[in-house]
Design a protein around this nucleic acid. Structure first.
Lengths: 209, 209
DNA sequence: GTCTATAACCCGATAGAC
DNA sequence: GTCTATCGGGTTATAGAC
């Protein structure tokens, strides 16, 4: 089956790149994991680089179904969604004993001179993430200051996650991630409080509005 | 000269690892850059991995003379030092057209299963950075809330930088870095204001104290 | 300590039958 | 589209003279 084989290659490569990195994953690794022969892979892809392109396209196209929908399941409040997404990464770190973090970030820092297609796709992946969080912050409406740069705050959210993942992966402890996220949450709380000085049950009331 | 040769190897490797990454730098690259022969390198180092260890030790030992002292030249105010360090990374990005960021972060995310010595040194490098910023925040004394977790805030500073570098390197634009840092600065400003409501010339007076 | 030469291996990619 | 076999080149590391 043609489509199936291609998908198996992309999926196997996605997993391997996330686990071992791009350079450290050999074509032979991908072939073994996908149970495919060399000829088939090179039938679908001109080379290894193009497999990476397909993987990054899969991440980009899968951001809603694969990442956001699961992370936001049962979470409606837009600001809570921001932290639900961060919690999703935390869960990922925890279940892998702090070895896997964000695959896009890892590839972004691993490749120092990516070809244009790869770089653009990495960029598109980050953009999709920031767009989604920016939308949450826009949906938060007047719970946040009117003059707040919501895209910049979404960018800080991504930085918090990526930096936290970097630290936690290095230390094999959740401390770095948790510290960064806790401070980010404190910042967002202060932004909320700057609009509406804290009163009991305020959040619930606004959320219902 | 023995020491000289070893130093040349370490310095060349440091530059190459930062520029091309660890995996993409071959021993031959290091030999050419350091103007050294294979036999000399293997006289000093058992293997490539050990060169990386030496490079990471050099970064760790050089954090004050090589990184902080230059970044903090002429900056005394402890809180301004935090942002002076971030500005230092911005300058680095700008002068390399957003291609070089933090070498430690790049290596940390490139290596997925680093041997213990390497991982510990990466950890030590991050720790040195966070320690330095934490000390700034401690030196800020009562300009920041008494119950503020200053180490966690220093961790968020590192995350801001690393995440910002990741975005800027990917987009080849300073926007991501600037957005993240601007929001982080806003957070710190709000922390200061929460202690001392803003009055004109307040910062200058406190800085002089 | 430094030099040259090269071993031993693995990699990405290709060839060509089916 | 899939299979097997293999090429050509680059990699880390070693051997051994000086």
């Amino acid at each position: 089956m043609a489509a199936d084989t291609r998908d198996r290659i992309v999926f196997s490569a996605m997993t391997l790149f996330a686990t071992k990195g791009f350079a450290s994953t050999s074509i032979a690794d991908i072939l073994a994991a996908a149970n495919v022969n060399s000829g088939s892979l090179y039938h679908f892809f001109p080379g290894k680089q193009d497999v990476l392109v397909a993987v990054l396209e899969a991440y980009r196209d899968g951001i809603h179904p694969q990442l956001l929908d699961p992370a936001w399941k049962g979470v409606r409040d837009p600001i809570e969604r921001v932290f639900a997404l961060l919690r999703h990464y935390r869960r990922h770190l925890r279940t892998t004993e702090c070895t896997y973090g964000c695959p896009i970030g890892s590839i972004a820092l691993e490749l120092h001179e990516p070809d244009p297609a790869v770089r653009q796709l990495l960029s598109a992946n980050f953009k999709g993430w920031i767009d989604a969080i920016e939308q949450c912050l826009l949906d938060a409406g007047d719970r946040l200051p009117a003059d707040l740069d919501r895209r910049a705050l979404a960018t800080l959210a991504l930085s918090t996650m990526e930096g936290g993942v970097m630290l936690s992966r290095t230390d094999r402890t959740l401390t770095g991630f948790d510290d960064a996220v806790r401070m980010f949450r404190d910042y967002v709380s202060r932004l909320e409080e700057s609009v509406t000085p804290p009163r009991r049950a305020r959040r619930a009331r606004v959320a219902r509005a």
